[in-house]
Design a protein around this nucleic acid. Structure first.
Lengths: 72, 72
DNA sequence: CATTAATTATCGTAAAACAATAATTTATTT
DNA sequence: AAATAAATTATTGTTTTACGATAATTAATG
């Protein structure tokens, strides 16, 4: 997928574990894992907001668009 | 909502109209308008990627988290 | 090796994107 | 002001997908 969800950096910065974040944002660790491992195909703004709140960050800190420029 | 979708800035920068962007990303102007006016409650990564591609930008350029610190 | 953390998998339900279409409102231009 | 274009709003229906709940499997850590 072209949109990467990277929670590891912010999690490490906040010294939080996936379980902690899952509890903080109110979803199961299973679903959080789906998000973390790039298996989610969409995200609710409510969830994104909860993540940003818990990690004290902005969407841009955890979402990245990677163009598929297969030039090479 | 705590997540703001701001396409206006990038649209202006690219001198694109909503209609152009809608066609570029393959959704109707009606649905794009829902996104633009903050009525969408989620977004598919495929759509977000298409927007980033069309506007040559990153998710952080169009998504913003606004904490609801009602202090004062 | 035992324990904890994280991932993967299934099934079911609720939520929401999105299409298609039409109507309405707002901008823009002549 | 009138005409035209652009954008928003509204409705209905379909399809996709989040997410819960749960359990099992696979990493990771002391």
């Amino acid at each position: 997928m072209n949109i990467i969800v990277n929670l590891d950096v912010m999690l490490a910065k906040r010294k939080m574990k996936s379980k902690d974040l899952a509890e903080a944002i109110g979803i199961t660790t299973a679903n959080l894992s789906i998000l973390k491992t790039g298996k989610a195909k969409a995200i609710r703004f409510a969830t994104l907001a909860a993540i940003c709140k818990a990690l004290e960050c902005q969407p841009g800190d955890i979402l990245e668009y990677v163009p598929d420029e297969e030039l090479a």
